[in-house]
Computed example of a mutant assay.
Amino acid sequence: MLYPIATLGSDTLNAVRALEKEIGSPVVALAALDTDTATLPKEDLRKLQVLENELGIVLVAVRSN
């Protein structure tokens, strides 16, 4: 299971913003994505990690359906 940033409709976004104001803290909305990570050969994993470092982001390889 992965949890990317959720896409929010206006009502949902307003509810999250109201909660942020009430608790005085930013809130990040995530959505559940039912998938499994891919098992990569060592060389492919190294390539993924190199690109992560270059871009300053986290990359996750997932199994294709």
Rank of each mutant, 00 (worst) to 15 (best):
L2N: 02
Y3V: 09
P4Q: 10
P4K: 12
I5P: 01
I5R: 08
A6Q: 05
A6Y: 00
A6W: 01
A6P: 08
T7H: 01
L8F: 02
L8P: 00
G9Y: 02
G9Q: 02
S10N: 08
S10E: 13
D11N: 02
D11S: 07
D11H: 07
T12S: 08
T12V: 03
L13T: 14
L13D: 11
N14I: 00
N14P: 06
A15M: 11
V16F: 01
R17P: 02
R17K: 10
A18Y: 04
A18P: 00
A18N: 08
A18V: 07
L19Y: 03
L19F: 04
L19G: 02
E20I: 05
K21D: 12
E22H: 09
I23F: 04
I23H: 01
I23N: 00
I23K: 00
G24I: 01
S25C: 08
S25V: 07
S25W: 10
P26M: 07
P26N: 07
V27E: 00
V27C: 02
V28W: 06
V28K: 06
V28C: 00
A29Y: 13
A29E: 12
A29L: 10
L30I: 05
L30Q: 14
A31I: 07
A31S: 12
A31N: 10
A32K: 12
A32T: 13
L33M: 09
L33T: 05
D34L: 06
D34N: 04
T35A: 15
T35I: 15
T35V: 15
T35Y: 03
T35E: 06
T35K: 15
D36A: 13
D36L: 13
D36V: 10
D36N: 12
T37N: 08
T37A: 03
A38F: 05
A38S: 03
A38R: 02
A38H: 06
A38Y: 13
T39A: 14
T39Y: 08
T39I: 14
T39V: 13
L40H: 04
L40Y: 06
P41V: 11
K42V: 13
E43G: 01
E43T: 03
E43F: 03
D44W: 03
D44H: 08
D44A: 15
L45Y: 07
L45A: 11
L45W: 04
L45P: 04
K47S: 14
K47G: 14
L48G: 06
L48E: 10
L48M: 10
V50S: 06
L51W: 15
E52H: 10
E52M: 12
E52T: 00
E52L: 10
N53Q: 15
N53G: 15
E54M: 13
L55V: 01
L55F: 08
G56D: 15
G56K: 07
I57T: 10
V58D: 13
V58M: 00
L59E: 10
L59M: 10
V60Y: 13
A61R: 09
A61E: 01
